[in-house]
């Protein structure tokens, strides 16, 4: 997940005949489902697309800590507090892990983070929405991590080896987060007061549509998808993944006893899928452009953390050098 509208730099997909011998060999490996490893030759477009996608994913893990950090200081019980802290720690770990996968492609973590802070690169639009009540900690786990998993389960088969392996590890932890999130909502709906139940419905109302937007624009508006699919960086189209997510989520929604803010959501016997209403794409593009409720705050917080920590990192470097010097002098 967490990657929307990733540029590939390709206007159209080349045919095998149009490719150079290296490109052809590369594409045949992809077609044969052989994983590409860091030391293998790869087209520049493939490398750059992956760097964009993995860095976007890593940035999303890190920025995604903020909406949860907003409630970790207010978690209502010891158990919920510990769960949320563990989840946040996992996300920091995912971020580190993904940045490492990205660095195997020759990119530099600090440079990519600078680009994020300068507003040059994206992270998932979902994290630009505020977390306004406690139930949001359940909904984020259930819907946001849920949407991420749908995407990431497919990405376990992505063609780039280090990314694929990162996804396998991350998926395990995300599934756990999703179950925990759903349990928060289920407990509130089953044993909560009227006010707590309203909290849950209000939370779902706010996160429903933004979660569907996480899969990116519809296929006919997704110019980069074709090349990404040919390289098997992407394995399923945005609309396919969105439909999968909706189909698996609606029964869970009904089990909670809640509703979605979509009057057109209903089972279509003929298609064997749920039909759903039109997404507000204007809102999606606005948020991507920086005009979401929290875009400004999220980036400011991250930038202040890293800029404000410059003296800390500088001190650590200076100390390490002095220690090294001492050891050399002693030797």
């Amino acid at each position: 997940m967490y990657a929307q509208l990733v540029e590939t730099g390709a206007k159209r997909v080349k045919s095998l005949e149009e490719m150079s011998p290296e490109e052809r060999e590369f594409q045949l490996k992809i077609d044969a489902e052989t994983k590409i490893e860091a030391k293998n030759w790869m087209p520049e477009g493939y490398r750059k697309t992956l760097i964009r996608q993995i860095s976007q994913h890593a940035h999303s893990e890190v920025v995604g800590m903020l909406p949860e950090g907003n409630w970790v200081t207010r978690a209502p019980t010891l158990k919920r507090k510990l769960q949320l802290m563990a989840k946040i720690q996992d996300e920091a770990g995912h971020g580190l892990y993904l940045y490492s996968a990205m660095e195997t492609l020759g990119a530099d973590r600090d440079e990519e983070i600078d680009k994020l802070h300068e507003g040059k690169v994206k992270y998932s639009s979902i994290f630009n929405y505020p977390t306004l009540n406690w139930a949001d900690m359940g909904t984020v786990g259930w819907l946001v991590d849920g949407a991420a998993i749908v995407n990431q389960v497919v990405l376990q088969r992505t063609s780039y080896g280090p990314y694929s392996r990162a996804m396998i590890r991350i998926c395990k932890e995300e599934s756990f987060h999703q179950r925990q999130g759903y349990q928060i909502l289920l407990d509130l709906m089953r044993e909560g007061t009227e006010e707590q139940k309203q909290m849950v419905q209000d939370s779902i109302n706010r996160f429903w549509w933004p979660s569907l937007m996480m899969f990116g624009p519809s296929d006919d508006q997704s110019p980069n998808s074709q090349q990404s699919m040919a390289w098997k960086i992407k394995r399923k189209s945005n609309d396919e993944l969105r439909q999968m997510f909706i189909d698996q989520t609606v029964p869970q929604l009904e089990f909670l006893g809640c509703t979605a803010p979509d009057p057109d959501l209903k089972w279509n016997e003929e298609r064997g899928h749920y039909d759903f209403g039109e997404i507000d794409w204007q809102e999606f593009y606005d948020v991507l452009k920086g005009n979401g409720p929290c875009n400004k705050e999220r980036i400011e917080t991250r930038k202040n953390a890293i800029d404000g920590g410059a003296w800390v990192r500088e001190a650590a470097r200076a100390y390490a050098e002095k220690q090294q010097q001492k050891q050399q002098n002693a030797a």
Binding site: V62, L66, L78, M85, V312, R313
Partner: peptide
């Protein structure tokens, strides 16, 4: 916990939350 998302490096983000988790677990 107040420092979540505000640490001077991602590694410190992990370490701070790790220590906090230990402490709240001990408190429990």
């Amino acid at each position: 916990c107040e420092l979540c998302g505000k640490a001077p490096a991602l590694e410190e983000e992990m370490a701070l939350m790790n220590v906090a988790l230990d402490l709240v677990g001990q408190a429990r």
